[in-house]
Every structure is written in C-alpha cells, then in structure tokens.
Design a binder for these strands. Structure first.
Length: 477
DNA sequence: CTATGGCACGGATT
DNA sequence: AATCCGTGCCATAG
C-alpha cells in the first residue's frame, strides 16, 4: 500500500465543531443570502463542483432527485404535505453550463426578484460618489422591514466615522428613490416624502402637507374638527385631505403584502421580495396534501470535483496539502448545504402539517405553535429552529407572503378575533367589553392586552370610533 | 368618573 | 443571556 491511499478515505471526516458551526450559519441564511454564499464558495474553492441539475421529464421542473413529486406522486395521506426542493434558477454567473432550453419555464418562476436594497442601490448608484457607496450600503442595511431608518443620520455618521453632511447627502438620495418614502425616521416623515414625490408628478392636495406636518397626532385621532378649526377650513375639507392621504400614500413604504393585507394592493412591491419557500395547493384536489417548495440556489448537486480528487494522488508533496484542504472544505460545505436543505424541508413539512388550517384559511385559524415543540418533534436543537425561521418568508397559496415567524405568532388568532368583533359591533365597544366578548369565544385576555391588540390592528379607541360614526351620520342628515 | 395609553415588571420564549 | 409578551398600576384626557 502506498502511503497515498491513506488519503483517499474522503468520506469519514471529523465533522464536529466546524461542521456544526457552518451548518448553523447556513440555516440562518435566507435564500438570497445563501445564493451569495454559495457563489462565493464556488468562486473561491476549485475543488467544489456543481453538477448539472436534474429536471423532471414530464413537467420540466428542476428537481433535487427523481421522481418528480408533482408528476408522479407517491400516494400519501392527505394530512402530510409534500415537500421538495426547488432551485430558484438565478445562481449567479459562475456555473451555468446548461443550454438555453429552460428559458420558457423561467416565466413561471418568480419574476425579477430583487432585494429592496439592491433595487435602491441601482437607482442611486449613478449619483453616488464611489467613496459614499459604503454609506449607502450601510444605510440600506439598517432599514427595517417597513422601510424606515430608525437611527438618526448623526448616529450613522458616528458609526461610520464620516461627516454628518455626507450621510445626509446619501440619505437624501435614498429618500428620493423609488418607492418613495424609504429611509424616513417614522411614518410621518415618510408620508411627507411621499407627498413630495407626488407633487413632482403634479398630484397634490392643498391641505395634505399641513395636516401631516403640523397636525399629525390629531389626524391620527380622527379629530378632524379641531384640525379644521386651526386651519380655518371646514371639516369636510380636512376629511377630504385625510382621504387623499389614505388613497395615495402608504404608511410603510417597503411593505409588500404582509401586515394584514388591508389597505394597499401594492402589487408592484411584491417584486421586491422573494420568498424562501412556496406553499401551494395541488392543482385539482383542494384537500390533497400541500406542496411545499424550498428554494435552493443549487440547480443540481454539489460535490467534490472528481478530477481534483484523482489528481490529488499524483500531485507533488508540497502542493497536496493545500489541495486536501480545498477538498475537505468542499466536502464540508456540500454536507452543510445538504443538512440545511434537509432541515428546512422537514421544518416546513411540520409547519405545513400543523398550520394547514391557517394556510387554507385566514389569520384566525393559526394554531399556537412554539419553536420548542417543533424542535423536539424534529429532534433538533431549538436554536436551529429559530435560525431556520429567522429572516425567511413563505408564499402562501392565496398569494400572501408572510414571514415564517408568523406561523409561531401566539396572538394572531386573538387579534383577528378582535378585528371581527369590532367589524361586527352594533355600537363602538370599549376594550373591557371586547375582552368580555373574547372570553365568550374562549380567548381569555386582560383588558390591557385587548387595547394593545386593538392598537396593533390599527383600530381606533371606542371614543374615536363613536365620533367617526356620529360624523358620518351627521353627514347623512 | 370612565376609557385608554405609558411604563415597568415577571414569566415565557428564543 | 437576551428578548418578547401579557399584565397591572397609574396618570391623563375627555
């Protein structure tokens, strides 16, 4: 036996801490981030190879393995969802040896998926000094999911160690990009920015600016009478301004579908987000098992390049060591990637199973579900679930795009119940009365909590609802 | 006086 | 260990 053969045992690895650490990291990444990581790894590790994808011969879908679960599904119980991996097909540049045959299927896949940050960056890049790029990147990274920038320019400047002026300059660009209103500190400022952009298009309202800028809190309380008095106009005019604001502006400029779907259809914004998983109903059988697609940037399988594996035996003593390191890293990466996919699939299978009602129905059908319970069910550590759930979104059959964490929202169904109680109330109910109503439906929550839910749903307090009602009555007579 | 929102505390969850 | 959430208490507005 030559001493070299000892090195061919590539399978058994000391996969311990490094393995765990990398898997953990990968699990925490969203599909988009994972794609970047994969591209970086492919670019920097010559031993890692992406072999061509497998497609289903019948439907042309990209598959992780045969058989295609859509076309010939093994019969399964109705309550068990079908889970499979699906490549999102946008693997960046490096490896794309396949022909162009897949192009017409491309249309079926999510269109022009682009992260909001990239979208903005592309717009402002021309006007941006090269030195200011890091500032822009930083600011965009700090935007919260609503599109707001919670910190002040001064804070950013201090963190970045650049002058306040430069930050403000870049921020100004961001705030005037599309969609308008991004990068504001709060809703009020955002609305003003949106108003500005509307005015540039020639659409404006005489009172809107004053209402938002100076009488915002009164407007929130629907205290139109007082605003009208201060501005010296009629209540109708103020109400008209409010309508204009509601119709043309959005409180959360980055909001796609989530939230509660109430309000803006904003179909355009949906393109800014790419879900990490897609849950769909089988085409013909509404009661059949759900389909769950977990997106992967891999269109095929990752493996160690066999050419390199073979060459390993022949290369020089000195070089061999570094090649071995590459190979080892490649094996590790592929394994971690596989592990991630496996975990994601099993997680989504469990979620789709548990929350089947919610997926078919609405918010009120959400079952209480904790990450811990799923962790024991899947036999993984609870932090794994936390990571897997974080920063990811799912597209539901009805088009809703929701963060995965929504499946674990303890209070969603109660909040939904509050909504429907208020919607059906004969007269404005106080929080106490709503609490009593809820108790009758089996939800036992404190009055204070009702107030919080109500506020979270954007429902005004009873007194304000009363005023609203009397106002519209007054209009009628 | 009543309804509500702010603050803060403790327990659960991550 | 850090964070989130429900809740109680208290101040305040109407």
């Amino acid at each position: 036996m030559s001493p070299l053969s000892a090195h061919t045992g590539l399978r058994q690895r000391p996969l311990t801490t490094a393995h765990l650490a990398q898997t953990m990291t990968l699990i925490g990444l969203s599909a988009v981030e994972l794609e970047e990581t994969l591209a970086a790894e492919l670019a920097s590790n010559p031993a890692l190879e992406l072999v061509s994808e497998i497609r289903c011969p019948t439907c042309g879908r990209r598959l992780k393995r045969m058989p295609c679960p859509v076309c010939h599904v093994a019969p399964r119980a109705n309550d068990g969802p079908i889970v499979y991996l699906s490549a999102c097909g946008t693997t960046t540049g490096t490896m794309r040896g396949e022909g162009t045959d897949g192009e017409e299927r491309e249309a079926v896949e999510p269109r022009a998926p682009e992260k909001l940050a990239e979208h903005i960056l592309r717009q402002i890049a021309p006007a941006l000094d090269v030195d200011d790029r890091p500032i822009a990147a930083y600011l965009l990274a700090r935007l919260d999911e609503r599109g707001f920038l919670p910190e002040s320019p001064a804070e950013s400047a201090q963190f970045l160690r650049v002058t306040l002026q430069r930050v403000q300059c870049v921020l100004n660009l961001v705030q005037h990009a599309e969609p308008p209103g991004l990068g504001a500190r709060d809703t009020r400022q955002s609305l003003l920015l949106q108003l500005e952009s509307l005015e540039e298009e020639g659409k404006s309202h005489p009172l809107a600016r004053a209402c938002i800028a100076n009488h915002w809190d009164m407007l929130c309380r629907h205290d139109f009478g007082r605003v009208a008095r201060i501005l010296g106009v009629s209540r109708e005019e103020v109400k008209d301004a409010r309508d204009f604001i509601q119709r043309n502006l959005t409180p959360y400029p980055a909001q796609a579908f989530w939230g509660d779907g109430r309000g803006q259809p904003c179909a355009d914004n949906s393109a800014y987000f790419r879900p990490d998983v897609i849950i769909s109903r089988p085409p013909h059988d509404a009661n059949g098992p759900l389909h769950v697609e977990v997106f992967t940037p891999i269109a095929g399988t990752l493996r160690v390049d066999p050419a390199i594996k073979n060459a390993l035996a022949e290369c020089e003593e000195g070089e061999r060591e570094s090649w071995e390191r590459y190979v080892e890293r490649a094996v590790l990466f592929a394994k971690c990637m596989q592990q991630r996919n496996n975990t994601m699939c099993r997680l989504l299978e469990a979620i789709a199973c548990e929350q089947r009602q919610f997926i078919h129905g609405g918010d009120r059908d959400l079952k209480p579900l904790t990450r811990v319970s799923l962790a024991v069910r899947l036999g993984v550590h609870e932090s794994t679930i936390s990571r897997a759930v974080a920063n990811k979104t799912a597209a539901l059959p009805d088009g809703r795009i929701v963060p995965l964490s929504k499946f674990f929202d303890r209070s969603l169904s109660v909040r939904d119940a509050v909504k429907s109680i208020v919607a059906a109330e004969p007269r404005p109910l106080t929080d106490d009365e709503i609490a009593a109503c809820l108790a009758r439906q089996g939800y036992h929550v404190a009055r204070r909590t009702v107030a919080k839910y109500r506020a979270a749903e954007g429902i005004l307090p009873a007194a304000a609802r009363r005023r609203q009602a009397s106002y519209s009555n007054g209009q009628r007579r």
